[in-house]
């Protein structure tokens, strides 16, 4: 069994940015629950600050099994609303819908062929998703445990389990 988890690289998940109230409490709970299903030895696929988020999440939950495990950090567009970090881009909803479909499929070909220029224009963090697709050949169970854009950024927490 191989297990792959996708979480968004949300800096508000890091303890150094904690306030009294947690603005991403639901997302955090979903991330921790998903990460808890990973094995003890986890390969992290992340860029920049996403690696810090991954490491923090991994440090938060005890894990025991030794199945091959991957934690991928990425998210959809950051242009879903006028208050989104990248302001509203009308192309964002369609981009995110197609990306979600490719992830849930999973569709490794579509993930490898992602339009990275458009992703950049939409402030999406998709740099690792092509590699994610490469991990998901064959039969695969997919669970989506979080899918929302509470701050105009499309987040997903997904778990893939392959036989």
């Amino acid at each position: 069994m191989t297990r792959v988890v996708l979480v968004p690289g949300v800096l508000a998940l890091l303890p150094e940015y904690a306030g009294f109230a947690d603005p991403v409490a639901d997302l955090r709970a979903a991330c921790l629950a998903a990460v808890a299903t990973l094995g003890t030895d986890v390969e992290v696929l992340a860029s920049g600050s996403g690696a810090r988020v991954a490491r923090h999440l991994l440090d938060q939950v005890p894990r025991s099994d030794d199945h091959p495990s991957y934690l991928v950090v990425g998210n959809g567009s950051a242009t879903r609303t006028e208050r989104a970090p990248g302001h509203l881009d009308e192309r964002a909803a369609d981009f995110d819908a197609r990306l979600r479909a490719a992830l849930v499929g999973p569709d490794p070909v579509a993930l490898a062929a992602l339009d990275q220029d458009l992703a950049t224009e939409l402030w999406a963090d998709t740099g690792q998703l092509g590699r994610l697709g490469g991990l998901l050949g064959g039969d695969c169970d997919v669970q989506v445990t979080y899918a929302d854009a509470p701050y105009g950024v499309q987040y997903w927490v997904m778990t893939w389990t392959t036989a």
Binding site: G19, V24, G152
Partner: peptide, 11 residues
């Protein structure tokens, strides 16, 4: 003291 609730730029 931490902020009450911080999300600006941290999404």
């Amino acid at each position: 003291r931490p902020p009450a609730r911080a999300i600006r730029g941290l999404q």
